[in-house]
Nucleic acid binder design. Structure first.
Length: 166
DNA sequence: GTAAGGATTGGC
DNA sequence: CCAATCCTTACT
């Protein structure tokens, strides 16, 4: 069954590991469908988390992070790759989960490429979208927590074990 | 207005 | 090791 907003309105440190084993579904305009199991996620939590984009405050780019959970946050990195994030938590508590890998696609940049993401997905509602959502197929995998990738600039926050891998 | 740099990847 | 490539943010 499709995950609803309720699922995503929980704290990101709960949602990020719970997403492992869930199925990501993307339908394309030609009618085809892509399904893959989420195998790696990363949590970004609050304005005080220097690795979180919301650490710079509310801007046009980070605005959706302040919404209640269940929305999509996409952004272009290095001018080349659209990274997929899911906003979590209550309204006005900026946090989100980066989808780093699927069973069939490893690497956040590759996930965005496979799903053919672009800026039109910014703010997409996963509970009602007809082209992108997450399903619970009754499977929860065991996981291990690691430090996040590529956030060496984040001071003490880089040491948080907020990356979850199946 | 201008410049610096990034939650990455693939190619040299 | 480093270029690709462009948007966001910070600063003059």
């Amino acid at each position: 069954m499709r995950l609803d907003n309720k699922f995503f309105e929980t704290d990101v440190l709960q949602v990020a590991p719970m997403l492992l084993g869930k199925t990501l579904v993307r339908t394309f305009s030609d009618g085809s469908e892509f399904r893959a199991v989420i195998t790696e996620t990363e949590a970004y939590r609050g304005e005080e988390d220097l690795a979180c984009h919301a650490s710079k405050g509310k801007t046009p780019r980070t605005e959706v992070l302040y919404a209640a959970g269940g929305k999509v946050y996409v952004y272009l990195i290095y001018g080349m790759y659209w990274l997929l994030n899911i906003v979590t938590g209550p309204k006005d508590f900026p946090q989100g989960v980066l989808i780093r890998s699927l069973d069939k696609v490893q690497g956040p940049g590759r996930v965005g490429k496979q799903l053919q993401l672009d800026k039109s997905f910014y703010g997409e509602n996963l509970a009602t979208s007809h082209r992108l959502w997450v399903e619970d197929i009754g499977y929860q995998c065991t996981y291990t927590a690691y430090q996040r990738i590529g956030v060496d600039y984040a001071g003490i926050w880089k040491n948080k074990l907020w990356r979850f891998v199946c």
